[in-house]
Design a protein around this nucleic acid. Structure first.
Lengths: 340, 340
DNA sequence: ATTAAAACTTGTCGCGTGTAAAATTTTTGT
DNA sequence: ACAAAAATTTTACACGCGACAAGTTTTAAT
């Protein structure tokens, strides 16, 4: 059976249904009578017709296109959460398109501009953070329902979902203090992500609550090459004996991976065993943290909850459902491994 | 200055240029006179008009849309090469859209089906490999100019570009034999990627050429969780003393990272130093291999050349330029680090 | 200055679908 | 069995742009 169906009109003729009804079916299969739907789906099997996306969206108010923007797809954390978010959009009947800003302000703006011409129904964005053009994102969010995740930006967008980074710091500090010396905090000097600040604050608050003096070691470095920054900053910190205790809490797992490399190079044995000289912990539960040497103790972000809240609140809001809370923070889970 | 420009006609009126010329400008800014281009670009600054993508592509034969499909964006190797390919497409004036099959046959097919309705001008795909539906990809490639990279699939597509995996094996075997005991080969039993087979063959050929007996250790495991497979398979191999020499060449870096974790757990010191008990090498130069403990000796894939060839050959072929060679394999570069 | 070529304008049609209103048919509830 | 409601069909128009043809203006070459 050769399919010479070239448009909806011909398909309508072939299936014995009027074109507007076919159109209605493709917009929402449940909006037509059961008997009609069956007829259409039978015909669909015989002639493999698919509506022209461009013609469809030209006159449609609701394209059901959604953009997903993350700062960096090379970071497994973002590729994982992007995958999660993407899947949820598809399941909800939307058409997601994935973009990465590659850590670059101009690219983030460019993505939004290109997105505009796609008449998107919504946007799910994990902003770059400090480097984001807040005004541009805010302007965009006036035109298109926008939901932020991972990194909170002023008061932009319908909702925000992310981790309770303050709690992260508190939780792991308590664990580290309970099981050994109180930790120093290892971070980038100018973190691009506002979460880093919350984590530092959580660390400081927890240390003070436990009667310890906080000790923050900030190292230089720009961009998203966190492992390299962690390693090079680690060398420097080790060499100038910047860590006042034998325990280091890193602002994120990628920095920790770099620090582990630096410790290895300096022949420092990492872990909580007898012959170990330093304990290292991170935050995020990066997909590779399970396989470092030693495996990294960390706080796992709640990927599932974060992406669920982002997607649900976007689609609810599009479909007119009132949203209860604008900001939703999810707690992390302590992952105990051999590094601390 | 409020922009109430709703379509090209209104923008044409506002800028004092006729609509067909505006249309021509958006298709190729260099196709209009300098003075005209300036007028248009001036107007563009005043009224922020952008053509409707859907209306544009509806009647266009050449959409300049290209699809980029990779097996897994969670794998930093693919996210890196995808980024490289993406950038090249944009620079060539095309509109790339990135997709990940997530290691899943059905998703790979689904992506191609959805892509069809985007009237793509071309496709750049790194297929899943063994799990790919070869017939589906071949069918697609009949309709849309298609270029394969990374993983070669039968005789599909215009061109293929990837690494010379046979050479990878030979090069690193020679290095390892020169500097220590001949290596065993560590791999998955049923590799999803055909490159793994070429690498094994390269290993065997090189070993035989040097007068050593090849020793292949294949471990169980399905899917794309290579680190986990490498670690668990590593435990098993170590415990049953499957490695007949003190040197292990892993089929890829992610397996090697897993094996490093297993060695660490079994208190085996990895490296080429005095007190080391095992040497481990990988292949790919995965972005994290620089930060493992110890840093991983490996063969770097030539990302740049692979992506350049893929993109260039696609666009050349679209623009009617004859293609010299159908298959292009690029040599790897030995990256010597402390693990071997 | 002349002339041919290139660029532009005007006008018109087609693309494949959404969408609305009115007329008709089918289904549902009693 | 009948009326009311829901679903469908018919008809008609809109959407925003690409493509083309024929005529006009500008530019470049001699």
């Amino acid at each position: 059976m050769e399919s010479k169906i070239r448009n909806m009109e011909e398909f309508a003729a072939a299936s014995g249904i009027s074109r507007p009804t076919i159109s209605k079916y493709f917009n929402d299969p449940d909006s037509v009578r059961n008997s009609t739907r069956e007829k259409i789906e039978d015909a669909l099997k015989t002639y493999d017709y698919r509506p022209n996306v461009y013609a469809m969206n030209q006159n449609r108010k609701l394209t059901r296109n959604v953009g997903i923007v993350v700062p960096s797809l090379s970071d497994p954390f973002f590729s994982e959460i992007a995958r999660n978010v993407e899947r949820r959009c598809i399941n909800a009947g939307y058409r997601p398109t994935l973009f990465s800003s590659h850590g670059n302000t101009e690219q983030e703006i460019e993505i939004l501009e290109n997105l505009l011409s796609m008449k998107p129904t919504g946007l799910l964005i994990a902003p770059l953070g400090r480097r984001s053009d807040v005004a541009a994102i805010e302007k965009f969010s006036k035109d298109v329902p926008t939901v932020l995740f991972d990194s909170l930006l002023a008061d932009i967008g319908l909702t925000f979902s992310g981790s309770d980074n303050f709690q992260f710091g508190r939780m792991i500090v308590e664990y580290l203090c309970r099981t050994g010396e109180p930790p120093c905090f290892f971070e980038m000097k100018n973190p691009s992500n506002p979460n880093a600040n919350k984590r530092r604050e959580g660390y400081i608050a927890a240390m003070e609550a436990l009667g310890h003096e906080p000790r923050v070691v900030s190292v230089a470095g720009e961009g998203w090459n966190f492992e390299e920054i962690g390693r090079d900053g680690g060398f420097e910190a080790i060499d100038r004996k910047a860590f006042s205790t034998n325990t280091v809490l890193c602002s994120n797992d990628r920095l920790a991976i770099g620090l582990l490399a630096a410790c290895f190079e300096r022949d420092m044995v990492v872990g909580h065993g007898e012959n170990c000289s330093i304990r290292v912990a991170g935050m995020d539960d990066h997909p590779f943290s399970e396989f470092t040497c030693p495996p990294l103790t960390t706080i796992a972000q709640d990927y599932e909850s974060i992406s669920r809240y982002a997607v649900d609140s976007l689609f609810n809001s599009i479909e007119g459902v009132e949203i209860a809370e604008k900001v939703s923070l999810f707690e992390g889970k302590l992952i105990m491994r051999r590094s601390a």
